[in-house]
Structures are given as structure tokens and as C-alpha cells.
Nucleic acid binder design. Sequence first.
DNA 1: TTAGAAACGTA
DNA 2: CGTACGTTTCTAAA
Length: 894
Amino acid sequence: MTDPVKPTLLVVDGHSLAFRAFYALPVDSFSTRDGQHTNAIHGFLSMLLLLLQNERPTHLAVAFDKSRQSFRTREYAEYKGNRSETPPEFKGQVPLLQEALHAMGVRTLEKDDFEADDILATLATRGTAEGYRVLLVSGDRDTIQLVDDDVTLLYPNTQGVSQLKRYDTAAVIERYGIRPEQYPDVAALVGETSDNLPGIPKVGEKTAVKWLGLYGDLDGILAHADEIKGVVGQNLRDGRENAVRNRKLNRLVRDVDLDVELAEFEAKPIDLDAVRPIFERLEFRTLMDRLTKLALGDAGQAASGGAAPSAPVEREPAPAAPTPQPLRDDELAAWLETATAAEPAGLGLSIDVIAGEVAGVGIATATETVRLEWQSAADSPALAAWLASDAPKIMTDAKLQLEALARSGLAFDGLVVDTLLAGWLMRPNLQEKSLADLVDRYLGETLPQSDPALLVPEEGSDAGAPEYAWYSLRVAPEVLRVLPERTRQLLADVEMPLVPVLAAMELRGVAVDHDRLAALSAELGDRAAGLAVLAYAEIGREVNLGSPKQLQEVLFDQLGMPKTRATKTGYTTDASALADLQESNPHPFLGYLLEHRDATKLRQIVDSLDKAIAADGRIHTTYGQIGAATGRMSSNDPNLQNIPVRAEDGRRIREAFRNGEGYVELMTADYSQIEMRIMAHLSGDPGLIEAFNAGEDLHRFVGARVFSVDPADVTPLMRTKVKAMSYGLAYGLSAFGLSKQLRIDRAEATQLMKEYFARFGAVRDYLRGVVEQARIDGYTETIFGRRRPFPDLNSPNRVLRENAERQALNSPIQGSAADIIKLAMIGVERSIAEAGLRSRMLLQVHDELVFEVADGEADALETIVRDRMSSAADLLVPLDVQVGRGASWDDAAH
DNA sequence: TTAGAAACGTA
DNA sequence: CGTACGTTTCTAAA
């Protein structure tokens, strides 16, 4: 095994390992508050620490590629020529990684005109000569040739970088059936796609190894090329230049002039004080802990050698959750008294939910947790009283738990912090999706969880309600600490009060008429079947009309239509492309196909809604409060925010949404043009503000300005164009996009935009300003202070950057609209309760609310809704609210 | 069996 | 080459 006398030299291929780490770890989960991606750095350092711990090298170096150019690219220009652009999220991490390594006292090496692997080869050669045991770490197979009795290669497996496969001579022989020094011959014959080095066609590892066995080495094989029969033999004779070239390129250089002595790589004790600042900047809490442990271990060894350890800061190990005490309800009041005194900001609370009902309750202070077994509300008067009181409670992902409480007949109040919502406001790109994520990020600890693969969780290993309560309690102050003041306010004023409102809406659900849906489904099914028959007749065969692949065959091969926009897997067959084709190459098949698509899509929606009707005859969607990065909510299971409304057929689905028993109709209330109004407010554009205050049709008003005509003379076409332009603005629409949407030429679109901005210049200035400010701040902000970070705004990658720019200019607008309707919902719910109405709010569709109206309450409800919605924010323009009522959702639309 | 792409519905 | 979502179906890889 290892020779205790020999010193150990560990050499790492920095680029290849960092790159592996980059792809192994989700980029979204590793970034700092200011948006710097750190997944590659984190993965690399994590692996390095593991190596230092397990291998205990005496000498250490990390080699990097200096650039993409090397003597190999000069020799063969196509070398690695197929490599796509390095992701910018990766690029920026390399200098930071090097900085971190230097802080850790690790030497890094790079050399003009050579690749990192050549440095590995050189150090391995010198190390062997100078009596070292050498460990190489690289993700490049070419380094296999370096393995010998003193040189071992650690190669990352496909899963990532946490597991390294150890290749010594025996392992290479076992894996490849050849000796390490023969590997380049195999690679030369087989070729290396990732390096853009084609090999001999039809020759894989098996064949190459067989030939090596027969003829010794590549030269031998080529010398006997004439004796090899069949297609492969001919391929070999045809491609011998390739093989020779490959062999030349994959030979690593063992004598790069490095101008260093191996002794300089001696591993020094880690200076934690030097490392701490950069690790803090990278927000590597767990890694810092691991490094600290490792360094203290080193110090301990040094101490045994005589020197006293320099007094490093002793880090406490991650505390374990206190063992939950079982508590009876009659003991609860007393416990709560001392607990509340100990935690005035709130107690941690978590509800075990099984099948939607309360199964257990955990409550936590910083030092104690209790578990209350729960039978029924009647058996737990003390618990019920505390839950119903306004005593402050801290939870994680409370909505589900609140619903379970309600179903079990328990009133609830006093939710002050939901850590999941707080974490989302801090990083709205859905990076922390669970308590476990929050515990990891904000405490640097791991939430105990049993293997989810186990059907029966291990006894005691799993975190239950008391543990969840305890971790929630500890996470809360850490998240709040880093939350900017306005964002904390947003949490307290908007997101937290919204939780019980959403819980109530989800519990209520909306009544849906199964019979109508069933009839509609049957009708659509028949229609689709008929259209399919017609479509098949046109092309003389049956294909799967739902298969883009088969459609491409029909359209482009069989019917010879011109190719449409390219997708990753071929050419698009989407509705707009088919419409274009219909214009240029009219064919009845296209019409049938489009209609068939419509019918099947609609039927699919109908069927999934029908399946979602619960036993109470109602559909209960789930709102995702942390659903969208802009601040909007999402709806799922089923999604009730994308029920068709534009097409006549689609609207028939809305006819199935009706008031339930005990109610007389539905009412809808929506903000008209809220995003344009927000744009008017944020930009302060006098023209746009006047447009809204004039109370005239917005698009007519704008059209009159843009086309310099009287409002009365604005034609429908002019109105359409201006409307598309106005709506497109908030999305970062380009002249190209506008021309495409309006089916007008580029020049006309450009002209339209020019005229528009000439009249509404402040809008353009505002949109530009948003992006510029975001580039500086790294985030955008809504009217209410909701932030969204944009790390890609300064990316050198144009696609990424321009995407980020459009997102950035849209976010304050979409986000402010979301803030406003959330505030309105909270106000409406409160006012309805205060007025004692039975009518209730059921659905939210971004700028629309749907209510179920009780008999005789329509007017009172409308007054409340109009008032709360229009006064939710104080803008420079009025917030106009449209209200409608009717027997169905469709009828209630206006 | 699973993950990704394509397609399409809403605001 | 217009933002924000969720769902379904097909497809290729595992």
C-alpha cells in the first residue's frame, strides 16, 4: 500500500475538476447574496478538503490551463474546436477559486502554450524521479498514460466530484485491458469526440485493445494495417493520418519548464485568518467549518511535534435538536408560560399533517421541544386556545399546516414569520424550497432526514414536528437579519397576512359542473377524431398528430414544405409556424392539424379539470406563494390561472365554473391595464398619466398621439398596433418581435416604436433606467420594495445578458402589480369578515379576483371589493376596477 | 422509469 | 429576437 517513508505529492487539474464540479452542482443553489455563482468553487474545494483529509499529502499543487490556445491548437487548429463557449457562470469562478486556493496556501501553476495535463505529466515525472508518491486528480482521460507504480490517478466518476475512482496500474489493466502507457494508442485509434479528434470509424475500445494485443503498439498496428480485413481494416488504412495525429496530440509533455522546485509545494498549515475573509465573501459556511476542523487537526499534529497550537477560534459543532418531550394537553399551559417568557419573539411551531389532517404538533424554544399527540380539538383545549390566540408563532411553509388545522376544527392566529417566505423574499429565484434548504444556507447545518428511499423511515432518525419547529425557530432570526428593511416590511405587511387568506381560498375551492365538462369533453373528442380522419386522408396515412417528430416528416419530407424555425431537435411545428406555412404553402392538412390541436388541447384541459373535482363537487387549487421570482403567485394541481378565455370554445370551459350551494352567483373583479398604469406611475410620463386620467379608451388615446390624429379618427388597425406596442413594452419587445406579432415589416415596426417613444419618451427613459440601475445594484425593486437579483446583467454572454435585461425591466412592473393585488386580497378578506358577509373570495388570476356571492350581498360585496382593490396602492393614476356578475365564471366576465 | 423538449393555456 | 407561470405528451436515454 502506501509507503510511509515516501512524501506524497498531490497535483490537481484545476480546470477539469472545477468544470466537473460546475456541472455536478446546480448553479442556482450556489450563489452569493450579490449574485456571484459559486457552485464550481464550492464543489472543487469540497473535493480538495476531502482529499487533504483522506490522502494527507505532504506536497500539493493545482494546475490550470492558461488559455484555450496551446501548442496543440497550433499544431491542429480543430483541436477542441467543437467545445462550446465556456458558460459565463463558470468563467468568473476560476479567478475566485485561485484566490481561495492562494488564501489556503496552495500553489497554483499555469504555463503559456501548455495545458494543465502537461503540467501534471511534468510534475509526475519529476516527483517519481525525486522519490515521491504521486497522486494526480484529473477528469481528462489522457492522464491515464501517466499512471505507474508510483503514480496514481484519481478520476471523477460521472456522478460528480465527490467520488473519485482510483486508477493504479492494476486498476487501469482491469478497466481497459491494457497497461497505462498503452492508453494513448487506444485513444488515438478510437478518437476523442470531446477534443474534436476523430478516430478510426467503427473502431472502439474493444477493437483497439485487440489490435494492441496482436501488434504491440500503434506503430505495429499501422505497419500491419494491410493484414486487417473487412471494413474496419479499410477504415484504418484510410484514417491512419488521423490516428498518427491523435497519438501526437495526446502525448503529454513531461518536461515543461516550470521554474519551481517540488519542495515549494510543501503543504503548510492552513492560516484560517487568511482564508476566512474570502470564504465569507463566497458565503461558504459549511466549508469553513470543515476547513477549520481540518486545520485544527493539523495543529494537533504540530503540537505533538512540540510547538504549541496557535489558539484558533474553537467552533462549536452543530447543535442537535433537543429531544422532544411528550406533553399532555393539561401540562401545556404551564410549559407555554415559561416558553413564551424565554422566546418573546415567538415560539417555533410545526404541525404534522397526514392526509390533510393534524396528526401531531411540535412546539419549540431554543432549548426545548415538546410534542403534543393530538386526538381532537375537544381533547386539547389548552392547545386549541394557544393556537387560536395571537401569541407569536414561527413556522415554515405554514399554509398547508394552517389548512390541516382548519380541517381538524382548530382556529389559528399569530403567525409572525414563515421562514420559507422570508427566504424567498431574500432570494426569490426559488433557491430555498424547503426547511432543509434554509437550514443548510442560514445555519450551515443539515436538517436530519432519513433516507427518502426507505419506505418505513428509520425510527428516530427523521425530523418530526418538534424538530421542524426547532429549526424554524433558529432559522428565522438568521433570515430576518439579512433581509433589507423594506423587504422585512413587505414580509410583515403582505406575505405573512396573505398566508391565512390563501389557505382559506384553497379550502373553499370553486364549484365546477361535472356534467358540463363531461359533455364538452365528449364533443371535443368527437371533433378531434373527425379532424384526425380528414387530416390522414390528406396525407394518405395515419400519423400521430401529437408527435412533433412525425409531423416534421409529413410536413418537410412528404409535403416538401419549407423548413420552419429550428428547434433543438428539428424544426418547429407550433401554431404560428403552421399559420405561416398555410400562407406560403396552403394545404388542407395544415388547417385540419391546427383545428385538431385546438380540440385535443381543450379536451385535455377539460379532462384534467374534471379529474380534479373533489368529493365536495369543487376544485381546490394550490397557490404557490413562492411560485414566481417577480412576486406573483402560481396555481397548481390544477392550475386555475390558465383556464382558456380568448377563444369562444375555450370560454365554454368557464361556463362550468359556477357558484356552489348556498350561493347565488359568481362575481369577478379585475384591474384594467394595471401594468400600463404602473408603468405610467413609475415612469411619470405626462402623456401616459394624462391618458389614464382622461378616462378615455387607453389605446385610442395613445393611438391618437402616435399617429397624430384625433381620437375619433383612430382606426381599428391603428388601435391594434398601438395596443401591441404598449403591452410589448413591459416585456422588452424589440422591433423584430413587434413586426412579427403584427405581421408588418421591420421598417414599419421600427417607425412605430420611434413615433411611440417620441410621444411617450419618459417611458423609454424609465425602462432604460431600470436596467441601468439594476446593473449597478444587482437587483430591481418594486414599488413596495420587493427585490429580485439579476446576476447576469453584466454577463459577457450576450444572450444571457439580454435575457436578464428584459427580465429586469419587466420585474418591477409585474412585481408591483403582484404586490398591489396581494394587498387588495388581504384588505378584501378582512373587510368581508368585518362586514359579516357570507360571500367569499375563491380565486386569484394575477389581476383578477373571483368571488362566490351570497344572496342579497352583491352590492355590499361589490362596494368592498371596488374600494379595497382601487385603494390598494396610491399611484399617480387611478386603479380602475371592472366588476361583473353571473351564473358562471364566463357569465361573470364583462 | 425518468428527464428534457415542445407545445400551449393564462396574465 | 416578449415577461411570468403549469401541464401534458412525446421522445430518447437509462
